[in-house]
Simulated assay, not measured.
Amino acid sequence: MYTLNTGDTAFVMLCTALVCLMTPALALFYGGMVPRKNVLTIMMQNFISMGVIAVIWIFGGFSLAFGPDLGGIIGDITFHFGLDGVGVAPSTEYASTVPFILFFAYQLMFAVIAPALITGAFAGRLTFNGYLKFIILWMIFIYLPACHWIWGGGFL
């Protein structure tokens, strides 16, 4: 039986909040580095990643990254699809002293900041539709498998 640790929970909450603040901070940082005509675009791209990646993470992303291993490449999508089974009870596999929903949120914040970091590389060169397609495909085909390989029980 795993029990919650208040110190661990408070620390992970603080870390989750700080990583969440990184996305708007990154938008402001990149906004200061691009020409005036691209400031709104770069800020919008950073903020839109919060919503798009959150939807992907809730509906399959977390399961693909941290679900039971399928051949070392990716996780099982049915593991916690749509937050099924993710609650305040600690996980037996991941972060056994903090609420599972907090572990979920912490990992979500890193999933959000990852594509936002890439926006600086193509500032002013990509349309909004192109950016949406890019972050969706990048999240599904690059981030989720790599996350599973390293932290989710994959081959690394």
Score class of each variant (00 low, 15 high):
M1H: 14
Y2P: 00
T3R: 06
T3C: 01
L4S: 09
N5M: 07
T9C: 03
V12I: 14
M13C: 14
C15Y: 02
T16G: 05
T16C: 05
C20S: 13
C20T: 12
L21A: 13
P24Y: 07
A25N: 09
L28V: 15
Y30S: 02
M33N: 12
M33H: 14
V34T: 13
K37T: 11
K37P: 01
N38I: 01
I42K: 03
I42H: 02
M44N: 03
M44K: 05
M44D: 00
Q45S: 10
N46M: 05
M50H: 11
M50E: 10
W57E: 05
S63K: 05
S63G: 13
F66I: 09
P68W: 01
I74H: 10
I77M: 12
I77P: 15
I77H: 04
L83G: 04
L83Y: 07
D84V: 13
V86H: 09
G87K: 05
G87F: 02
V88Q: 03
P90Q: 01
E93V: 14
E93Y: 08
Y94S: 09
A95K: 05
A95T: 05
A95C: 04
S96N: 14
I101E: 00
I101K: 00
L102N: 12
L108F: 11
F110G: 15
F110Y: 14
F110I: 08
P115A: 04
G120D: 07
G120S: 10
G120Y: 08
A121W: 14
F122M: 07
F122Y: 14
A123K: 01
L126T: 15
G130H: 06
Y131F: 15
L132C: 14
F134I: 05
I135K: 07
I136G: 09
L137V: 09
I140M: 15
F141Q: 02
F141S: 07
L144A: 06
L144N: 08
A146C: 10
W149A: 07
I150P: 00
I150S: 01
I150L: 13
G153F: 08
G153N: 09
G154V: 01
L156Q: 02
L156H: 02
